[in-house]
Design a protein around this nucleic acid. Structure first.
Length: 607
RNA sequence: GCAUCCGUAGCUCAAUUGGAUAGAGCGUUUGACUUCGGAUCAAAAUGUUGGGGGUUCAAGUCCCUCCGGAUGCACCA
């Protein structure tokens, strides 16, 4: 768990080179095994810690001691007797109730940075045991504009797929597009009766949205219209040529919109298998569930009911009404014969398992659907018990976006904010700021900087808060140049780049082979923080929380700034110091760029 | 009604999931420009982690309870 190693290409004799904390960790685990042969050492980890205690600490011995009723400090002493990390660390301290504090040797720190400077690694390694992970995210609906609600799923999902890929996992990203369902009855009716062709050609999504709103309102008021819409849907589902043709055209028009937005956001999917893809299997799924007695008929519909294996409080198939626990089934077939999204989702899991045999499927979907996923996962486990043990199903939920009054984020007129328009506004606002601060740059360059900063600001603001909580959308905060924002981080990067421009102008370009000399406290602090990039990436991949990376990068920028203020680079006292500091600058820039890229955020060389 | 999630500095949020003295940014106050990008930096003040109880070497984190908020509860997804 959390272990990773570097692959050094053709080098056979020395296949693995581990980062200092990994060496400490593996030697510590070996020492624990010597003292407690039957101990489970996978939880024996070291973590970066408060510098007043050391560079890394382990608190694992305290819980081991507790389980065995040993004196934790005595256990620590015994383990230390078997532990030799003298190549990596200064003397290890036992502190507090039984913490182990490790302090890195400066020479080893410098060596690690030198290897990074020569391109051997960038402070992270490929996972020792790569996992196959399906990530399901974004999932927009056909015939509807993408809106703010899609930012979170798309941004978090993309950051997760990038993080997992960087660590060497096999990722299959799949956009489960909403291209099937009851809304198409209304859309088809609208298309046939009130379609405005020129409007469709001008702005297809807006026209489709208009159709839907008209028919939807009519259906609410008039049952006959609702029947008409339903019959269009039945015809579509029966394969009626005209309706299928219209449906396909609606999908194609929507796909153009999706492609445009994903292009701007730089988000790519390996697959976009929409709901309709699973249509052929839905009947079989329900039949199989019925045969196995997992689902049964009720009030004309077919649903999965509680099997009584969980206490009522924890059973998602039960709900308490007026003090009594009553059934709250997961419907897999409606009384009119149509299928529900539960059915599609079951077929989807089944398909993914058969096709990719993933270790894990991750759904990046709004927290409001937590109940649905609970039912889905439990139903699947009952349906395909053997498969379910091989694949972990995870719902990565997230909160809502609120406005500055704490209400759901809407336009002034109360409509949902369209994603395309939001991105336009981000770029416009960024352009205004860039033009104000850097009027001397040519317009095309200011536009490009504004694009990177504007989109980056929106993405970063979305990734920074802990994903489970709601967050408040604020243009001023996300676009601010001070504070934990994308513009600040990109600025930090650009500032480093300017040092290199200047250095080259002085025809004294930087040599990555230079020896690293770490003397000033700011140099040491920065160097140690660089080493923690990989630990952070692993934490992101493990906990599925990109905000860890945001905070790491912000701290990196802060530690760099403090170095920059206190340690002259180009004006260093001697050539060796100057060369060493240039390497530190270069490594910081590379980690910043790689880190931001992992969040799906671009950088600019100048701003 | 029941369930789930949440409540942390004036504001917006962290806290690597049970670790040491709860941290940032904004805002406020004060200071630093002939010095590598001032779109910057440094320093200061700010807390009964909603209240109460419990579990243990250790609780913002786990358990119970109360208060407050959000969300979800049969044929939409």
């Amino acid at each position: 768990m959390g272990k990773s190693v570097f692959h050094l290409g053709a080098s056979v004799a020395k296949i693995f080179l581990v980062l200092p904390h990994q060496q400490i960790e593996s030697k510590l685990q070996a020492a624990v095994r010597l003292v407690l042969p039957d101990a489970e050492v996978s939880a024996v980890l070291v973590r970066p810690c408060d510098p007043k205690f050391g560079d890394y600490q382990s608190n694992a011995l305290m819980s081991l001691a507790k389980m065995r009723k040993l004196n934790p400090r005595q256990l620590a002493t015994d383990v230390l007797a078997k532990l030799d990390v003298s190549e990596v660390c200064e003397k290890i301290e036992i502190a507090g109730a039984g913490f182990l504090n490790f302090r890195l040797k400066t020479a080893l720190l410098a060596q690690t940075l030198e290897a990074a400077a020569c391109g051997e690694h960038l402070f992270f390694g490929k996972a020792a045991q790569p996992r196959t992970v399906v990530i399901d995210f974004s999932s927009p609906n056909v015939a509807k504009p993408m809106h703010v609600g899609h930012i979170r799923s798309t941004g978090i999902g993309d950051a997760l797929q990038r993080s997992l890929r960087l660590l060497g996992h096999r990722v299959i990203s799949d956009n489960h597009i909403g291209d099937w369902g009851t809304q198409f009855g209304k859309l088809l009716l609208g298309w046939k009766q009130v379609l405005d062709r020129p409007a469709l050609e001008h702005d297809a999504i807006a026209e489709l949205e208009r159709l839907y709103k008209i028919i939807n309102a009519e259906c609410d008021a008039n049952p006959a219209r609702l029947e008409a819409a339903k019959s269009e849907l039945v015809k579509l589902q029966a394969g009626d040529a005209e309706n299928v043709g219209i449906w396909k055209e609606m999908i194609a028009l929507s796909q153009k919109q999706f492609d445009a937005i994903y292009g701007r956001l730089g988000v790519k999917f390996d697959f976009a298998l929409g709901e309709s893809f699973y249509n052929p299997w839905l009947g079989e799924v329900v039949a199989d569930l019925l045969t196995r007695g997992i689902a049964r008929e009720s009030e004309g519909a077919v649903g999965v009911f509680s099997d009584g294996s969980l206490p009522p409080k924890e059973d998602p198939f039960l709900v308490n009404r007026d003090g009594e626990w009553v059934a709250d089934p997961a419907l897999v077939r409606k009384s009119d014969g149509g299928f529900n999204y539960m059915t599609t989702d079951l077929a989807t899991i089944d398909y993914r398992l058969k096709t990719w045999a993933p270790d894990e499927i991750i759904y990046v979907v709004d927290d409001r659907q937590a109940g649905h996923f609970k039912k889905l996962f439990l139903t699947f486990a009952r349906w395909k018990a053997a498969d379910a043990t091989k694949t972990k199903l995870v719902h990565v939920g997230f909160g809502k976006i609120m406005d500055e009054d704490g209400k759901p984020f809407k336009t002034r007129s109360g409509d949902t904010v369209k994603l395309g328009e939001l991105l336009d506004e981000a770029e416009e606002r960024a352009y205004k700021i860039v033009s104000e601060k850097s009027a001397e740059l040519p317009e095309a360059e200011r536009k490009e900087i504004a694009r990177v900063i504007g989109l980056g600001a929106v993405k970063y603001a979305d990734l920074l808060p802990n994903r489970q909580s709601d967050y408040i959308f604020s243009w001023d905060k996300m676009l601010a140049l001070q504070g934990n924002t994308a513009p600040y981080l990109v600025y930090a990067y650009a500032r480093i780049k300017s040092i290199f421009r200047k250095s080259e102008a002085e025809s004294a370009s930087h040599n990555p082979q230079s020896a690293i000399v770490l003397v000033a406290p700011e140099e040491l602090t920065l160097a140690k923080h660089l080493l923690n990039f990989g630990i952070t990436l692993e934490a992101v991949a493990e906990e599925l929380r990109p905000n860890y990376l945001c905070n790491y990068l912000f701290e990196l920028a802060g530690k760099f700034t403090s170095f920059y203020e206190n340690c002259p680079v180009l004006k260093a006292d001697d050539a060796a110091t100057r060369a060493s500091r240039l390497v530190l600058c270069d490594l910081t820039a590379r980690v910043l760029k790689q880190g931001l890229a992992t969040l799906g955020i671009e950088t600019v060389e100048q701003m």
